[in-house]
């Protein structure tokens, strides 16, 4: 999950930078594109476009679009244990809607997503602090926050399992210093999902901080100076200038975070496992998909689950794009 996020963010950062450098007052950018286009002529530039898009398009077609089509077809079939499949129409979808575990999985996934979004304000706050003028050892802090992003998810899961251990965990050890009785965080149905979401937030914090730092550094000093002259304090500046000017980054991070959270699987798989008593309260949609596709070997049914998730993500993302008009400020 984390590496997917890392891949996605590479481009948006450059996107942000480009946007910033085109801030009013900087010459060059307007007209550069059109002028170049006129010189080469439309036919020639189409060829160039194809050349640049080609490799990516081929990869997308082979590894994303074609499997998606196959999955869609698969979701209307029922396959035998050793290959061979028959067309069953909408049976898989009907069964999915009637599956009592689906409702639980939807609820757990939604709850996880809501908790995971708490990571955004945390990342904004940390990024703002890291961006403070005159902060010493800034690169050390940045490295520390980014380490979880480049750590193997399996290692993260293993270490956090030990931290959360009810008998020997560091967390309970620390709580006992304050006289608080700990518990088995990962097996207690009331805490397991939150415990996992905390790890998810922690693991994804570094990426979000980097995106917000890029955004923060694009905020022109002149605006801040003007605010100073007007007598705004640091808090007022943060909420009236930083947040609005950072809103495009916040929007991007929230879209990516929601998609990532809806697809959470690795932490549930590695930190809990199937016979965990808290499983009914932590089973996510992708975990349901995994059980169907890989444990129970019902590929058609698993494909139907994958498609349901795709539709949910699609709808939520479209809603987010609609809502952005109300709160995202583009310069």
């Amino acid at each position: 999950m984390t590496d997917l996020i890392a891949q996605r963010t590479a481009a948006p950062i450059s996107e942000l930078d480009r946007g910033r450098s085109a801030a009013p007052g900087e010459p060059g950018r307007p007209g550069r594109g059109p002028r170049a286009g006129r010189r080469r002529g439309p036919a020639q530039s189409a060829w160039w476009a194809l050349l640049f898009i080609g490799p990516t398009a081929a990869g997308l077609l082979a590894f994303y679009i074609w499997p998606t089509i196959r999955t869609f077809i698969l979701s209307f079939t029922e396959s035998g244990p050793f290959g061979g499949s028959e067309f069953v129409g909408l049976d898989n979808y009907v069964r999915l809607i009637e599956d009592p575990e689906l409702l639980g999985a939807l609820r757990n996934t939604a709850l996880y997503t809501v908790i995971a979004l708490v990571g955004i304000p945390i990342a904004v706050a940390v990024a703002a602090l890291l961006n403070t003028a005159g902060l010493r050892g800034r690169s050390v802090y940045r490295t520390l926050y980014f380490i979880p992003v480049v750590t193997m998810p399996a290692a993260i899961a293993l270490v956090w399992r030990m931290i959360y251990n009810g008998d020997y965990g560091v967390l309970n050890e620390m709580l006992s210093v304050f006289g608080i009785d700990g518990r088995s965080w990962l097996t207690d149905p009331s805490t397991a999902l939150v415990a996992i979401a905390v790890v998810g937030i922690w693991a994804g914090l570094g990426t979000n901080i980097v995106i917000f730092l890029a955004g923060l550094q694009g905020i022109p000093d002149t605006v801040m100076e003007a605010a100073d002259l007007d007598g705004a304090g640091p808090v007022r500046k943060f909420f009236s200038i930083t947040i609005p000017l950072l809103s495009p980054s916040i929007f991007f991070v929230s879209v990516i975070s929601v998609i990532g959270a809806l697809q959470v699987f690795d932490l549930v798989y590695m930190m809990l496992g199937r016979s965990n008593p808290a499983m009914p309260n932590t089973r996510t949609i992708v975990y349901l998909f995994y059980e169907a596709g890989f444990s129970d070997n019902e590929r058609g049914y698993a494909a139907a689950i994958a498609f349901l998730l795709l539709i949910i993500i699609l709808v939520l993302t479209v809603v987010q794009f609609r809502l952005q008009k109300k709160w995202v400020h583009y310069e």
Binding site: I259, L262, R299
Partner: peptide
């Protein structure tokens, strides 16, 4: 920055479905 690249996000949506690639064997 005029807009978040919409196509990129739409493509990443497809990720959820492609977990099934592994099933293809």
């Amino acid at each position: 920055m005029r807009h978040v690249p919409k196509s990129r996000i739409m493509v990443s949506l497809a990720v959820s479905a492609t977990a099934l690639v592994a099933l293809a064997g």
